[in-house]
Design a protein around this nucleic acid. Structure first.
Lengths: 228, 228
DNA sequence: CTATTAGTCAATTTATTACTTGATTATGCG
DNA sequence: CGCATAATCAAGTAATAAATTGACTAATAG
């Protein structure tokens, strides 16, 4: 059926190359790994834990991503650290996410169903919320692991990882509204945080954006530990 | 191994949705179809011929693309016409292509090897060439099928489909340089055209850009048949 | 040297995907 | 009506991919 002229072979080769990227992102597991890596470099072990995957499986998926040149790895001692190969990869991932959100109604449905079951589907005026965050009128809480906070966070945000939150409530002023954020719209840590905070009497809301989205809005990102 | 907390199920569902898009673009054949469709709507039959695929296979691939909401179809009489679901899809495809080009050195190699074998790997000053095209100092030749020309072309370009070129050389002024273009950097029609023109004594060069790229540079695109 | 840990490799099973072939449906035409 | 054509469907085979398991390698600590 197929012809084998040089021109056909050329186009076939080209589209096969494009498909290498496509195949790399054709697996939900690998997309999760890419999403985690877009928060910063990680060891195989850490990624496996975060994605709730076996170590061997995670390692194999990472090798697929590496074969497609989407991630790089380097070994230091016992640990192999993977990172996105280029910031262009993060941007591509964002584009994929946007396309999926706009084309696949199922995503919005899933999100809505999940939030409703947790009683957190209140309407939030995103712009107004962002303005409050930027103005410093609210306590901004970054509930991701500390390493991710260090790699980049919303300016003036306080780092209290979700795992520690229960024991560190005293650090949060009670007279101000709390805005919690984590890795982005599909990360559940900030949802858990808001739930916990409300149960303890705080006025708390969730910011869907993560650092990526914050940066994409053109806002500045702070790096390292909090000064003073 | 995997846990089944509601939060985990939520993230899994979300990444599965993202992966729908990934799976859709994981096949070279489907990417070729998307590329063809980004030139304009097409019937299944036309797509099958252009992609050198069996009709049944093409139809099945198109259905996969439709299931991922990347394309839409509607039936008029005997014919089913497929089109990109949204301009966002075309933009996503461009992003994929750019990422592939920048991450996968094999693409540049393949391109170079193909052009060298045909003796067309001369260095072209792209900016200068674009300027000549824009100024009207050269004869611009659109060698794609007429329908694609009608759907959008570089202003002042003349439509002579590659298949007709041999018989319509008389329409091309001999005293001016000819710049031929087709669907973009991976389409071989303009290459064939330049080869033919040179063999017949024309001064001809290829413009790698297609209409998509032209538009992406911020230049205007003309529609319909040539006025006057 | 031995034990431990992070990561990879190799082999296997299972599930999914690609493509072909031939039948089937739907539309339009004489 | 009968026939041709565009497209899809359905069934089958071959090829790929995903996840698990257990073995293996490399670095490090005692």
């Amino acid at each position: 059926m197929r012809d084998t002229t040089p021109a056909r072979r050329f186009t076939d080769t080209i589209y096969e190359q494009f498909a290498r990227i496509g195949k790399a992102i054709a697996s939900p597991r690998r997309l999760e790994l890419l999403d985690l890596l877009s928060q910063g470099p990680r060891t195989v072990d850490a990624l496996a834990r975060l994605a709730a995957q076996s170590l061997a499986n995670t390692s194999q998926h990472l090798q697929v991503l590496r074969a497609a040149r989407l991630v790089d790895a380097d070994k230091e001692g016992l640990y192999v650290t993977y990172r996105l190969a280029d910031s262009e990869v993060a941007r591509f991932f964002q584009t994929l996410r946007q396309l999926a959100e706009s084309r696949l109604a199922e995503i919005e449905q899933t999100k809505r169903a999940f939030l409703e079951r947790r009683g957190l589907m209140e309407p939030v005026d995103r712009e107004a919320l962002l303005e409050r965050v930027r103005s410093g009128k609210v306590t901004v809480l970054d509930v991701r692991p500390v390493e991710e906070y260090r790699a980049g966070h919303i300016p003036r945000a306080v780092s209290i990882p979700l795992t520690d939150l229960k024991h560190r409530l005293a650090e949060i002023p009670r007279n101000r509204e709390v805005v919690a954020y984590c890795r982005g719209p599909y990360c559940v840590m900030a949802i858990d945080a808001v739930e916990l905070l409300r149960a303890r009497g705080f006025k708390a809301v969730r910011l869907e954006d993560g650092v990526q989205e914050w940066r994409a809005r053109g806002f500045e990102v702070a790096v390292g530990d909090r000064a003073a």
